[in-house]
């Protein structure tokens, strides 16, 4: 099963290497990892999607906790939460395909962020499923480049993943 962890860390040099190193060394699989600072510049937040059974997840969490720079870990998988991922995709778009691609963009509420002579670049945000579906829809048009940021997640309502 896949779990989504929200991890607050001290924004110290090397903290990403410590977390990534821990995963590879102990044989845990990272599906995606997104990291950036929070409202407090001294604290960063990572959203880590990890694949594994409950025992693996327990070890991941406990080992992460042992890192001195890790402040707090919340497993949001089972809690009501909002999750988003950003994708940018560049597709080959000759005259004939352009209109169809723009229609697809419309359906997925994706934005056209670049209009090249031979290509269109789309940007979309949404859940993982939506992004997957967009990718599938664009596949027949020759995707030249695609990249995803990895998921970020936040609990709904008055539940907080903060230091205090």
């Amino acid at each position: 099963m896949r779990h989504t962890l929200a991890v607050l860390v001290e924004n110290n040099p090397g903290v990403l290497a410590r977390v990534a190193g821990l995963f590879s060394r102990r044989g845990f699989n990272i599906d995606s990892l997104a990291v950036g600072r929070t409202d407090d510049p001294a604290i960063s937040r990572m959203t880590i999607v990890v694949e594994g059974d409950n025992r693996t997840l327990e070890q991941v969490t406990k080992q992460l906790h042992k890192l001195v720079d890790v402040i707090k870990i919340t497993d949001v998988t089972e809690e009501p939460h909002v999750e988003r991922e950003l994708v940018m995709v560049k597709v080959l778009a000759d005259r004939a395909a352009r209109l169809e691609i723009m229609q697809i963009a419309d359906v997925f509420r994706a934005k056209i962020v670049d209009f090249g002579p031979k290509t269109l670049t789309l940007e979309a945000t949404g859940t993982e499923e939506k992004i997957n579906a967009l990718e599938e829809a664009l596949r027949p048009y020759t995707i030249k480049e695609l990249m995803r940021t990895g998921k970020i997640a936040m609990l709904r309502g008055a539940k907080y993943t903060t230091v205090k």
């Binding site: 040099p13 090397g14 290497a17 410590r18 190193g21 001195v68």
Partner: peptide, 16 residues
């Protein structure tokens, strides 16, 4: 050396 010893220390520091 902080990179090398990351997996074999409880914690390490590079003083700046």
């Amino acid at each position: 050396i902080t990179g090398i010893t990351m997996p074999i220390t409880k914690h390490n520091y590079l003083v700046e």
